[in-house]
Amino acid sequence: MKPLSLTILLPLLLAACADGGSDYTPIVDGVSTAAFQSDLAACQALSRDQRAFDQETAAAAALGAGVGALLGAADDDATAASGAIAGALAGGVASAVDVSDQREAIVVECLRGRGHRVAG
C-alpha cells in the first residue's frame, strides 16, 4: 500500500476508535430500575466527553510514528516512511484499545455511583 493512502487511512482508523467504550452497556445484577436507561445515557455521555483520552491516542500514534521512522531508516529493506506509518498504526491502535477500556470503566463506575448494581 502506498504511504499516501496509509496517511489518509490512519486518521480514519483512529477516529473510528475515538468513542470506543463509551457505548458500553454493562450487565446489571437484578432488575434494572426505571432510571437505569437515563442514568446509562448520562454515564455514556460523561465517558464520551473525556477528550484527554483522544489526545493520549494521538500522542501514542505520534510516538509510534517516530520510533517506527527510526527503525525503518535503520533497516536496509524498509524506509523511514513505511516505518513511521507502521509505528503510528501500532501506537494508535494500542492506545485506542486502552482508552476504550478506560471509557467502559467510567460508565461502570458512574452507574455504581448512581446506585445501580453493576456486575461488569
Rank of each mutant, 00 (worst) to 15 (best):
A96S: 09
A90S: 07
A41H: 02
A80S: 14
I106E: 11
L6Y: 01
A88L: 01
L12T: 02
G72I: 10
L6P: 00
L9W: 06
G68C: 12
F53A: 10
L9N: 06
G20W: 04
S82L: 14
L70G: 14
L10C: 00
A18Y: 01
Q50M: 14
D39Y: 02
E109G: 13
P26N: 00
S95Y: 04
V99W: 04
A60C: 04
D77Q: 13
V31E: 11
A41S: 09
D77P: 03
A60N: 08
L46W: 05
P26C: 01
A52Y: 08
L13A: 06
V118C: 01
A74D: 07
G120T: 08
R117Q: 06
L6E: 09
L6A: 09
A42L: 07
G30I: 12
L46M: 02
R117A: 14
R48Q: 15
D49R: 11
V93G: 01
F36V: 01
D49T: 09
A58T: 09
S47K: 07
T33S: 13
V118P: 07
A58F: 07
G68K: 02
E109V: 11
H116G: 15
S22D: 07
T33C: 00
I8Q: 12
A45K: 15
S47R: 09
G83K: 01
A84G: 15
A90I: 08
E109N: 15
A34D: 00
I27Q: 12
A52G: 11
L6M: 08
V108K: 04
T79K: 05
P3D: 13
A59L: 10
V99M: 09
V107N: 14
A90N: 02
D76N: 12
Q44H: 03
S100T: 11
A80W: 07
R114V: 03
D101Y: 05
C17K: 04
G30E: 04
I8N: 02
V99E: 03
D39F: 01
S100A: 11
L111M: 11
A34W: 00
V93E: 00
A105F: 03
S95H: 05
R103D: 14
G66L: 10
A78E: 09
L14R: 01
D76P: 14
L89A: 06
L63H: 06
A18D: 02
D101E: 12
A84C: 06
G72W: 07
G120V: 04
A94I: 08
P3T: 11
P26Q: 02
A16H: 06
V97E: 00
Q37F: 04
L13C: 06
L46R: 13
A42S: 02
R48V: 04
V28W: 05
A18S: 07
G113H: 12
D76V: 15
R51W: 09
A90D: 05
A119M: 00
S38Q: 04
G30D: 02
R117T: 10
A15T: 10
R112A: 03
C43F: 09
P26A: 05
T57G: 08
G20I: 03
Y24F: 15
L9V: 09
